[in-house]
Design a protein around this nucleic acid. Sequence first.
DNA 1: TGCATATATGCCTATATGATCATGTATGCG
DNA 2: CGCATACATGATCATATAGGCATATATGCA
Lengths: 104, 104
Amino acid sequence: MGPELIRLVAARFRALSDPARLQLLNVLRDGEATVSDLVEATGLGQANVSKHLALLHQLGFVRRRREGIYIWYQLADRDVLRLCDLMCGRIEAEAAARGRLFSG
Amino acid sequence: MGPELIRLVAARFRALSDPARLQLLNVLRDGEATVSDLVEATGLGQANVSKHLALLHQLGFVRRRREGIYIWYQLADRDVLRLCDLMCGRIEAEAAARGRLFSG
DNA sequence: TGCATATATGCCTATATGATCATGTATGCG
DNA sequence: CGCATACATGATCATATAGGCATATATGCA
């Protein structure tokens, strides 16, 4: 992995390193949603949501399309979920290891 | 995904969101290494490397063992590589898409 | 055209983060 | 014990980033 590729990878992991953005992706897991939907679902501010979505879009994690006055966002592909699931798996394994520590 | 799990996942992605840490993990891909090895391989400062390793260790990405005066670090498991490879795959796909844009 | 709604963007501030320097701690050896 | 080597940690500074407010842009409709 050359320095340039490392920078690209880092930038993408950084996009996933914020609770607000993960929350947005998590809502999109249930299907397409407008910015307003996402604002309501997450409780985040509208400007905030727009900025997070802009970053996620720029890095290819979400797609968007306009429909009249609304803009609908959706997950770009299944990789995002795979990445999150991998991380969750690690956390569960960690928790399980802790459990074994206490019981055994 | 509850808020707490989201925070845990975000923290782990954050650990992978820094070029210096990815560089360290990339070196460890070739096998176990001491802090000195990593300092030399990456060109980073020693204190800097130690702190990055501490974070990676705290979040379970690397294991360490002491051998006399040295401390050897290694990847904790294969998940790290899977995560990076997934990201790299996304970037390659992106580049390929760009290529198609220019040629077609 | 003028207005309302939906979304994006610029500015500002608080906080987080990374790099460096200096120092602390741990191990080995004479 | 005293010293050298390897690593960790604390302090500091510069920069990056998230959030909120205000505002700009875009679309639809009367």
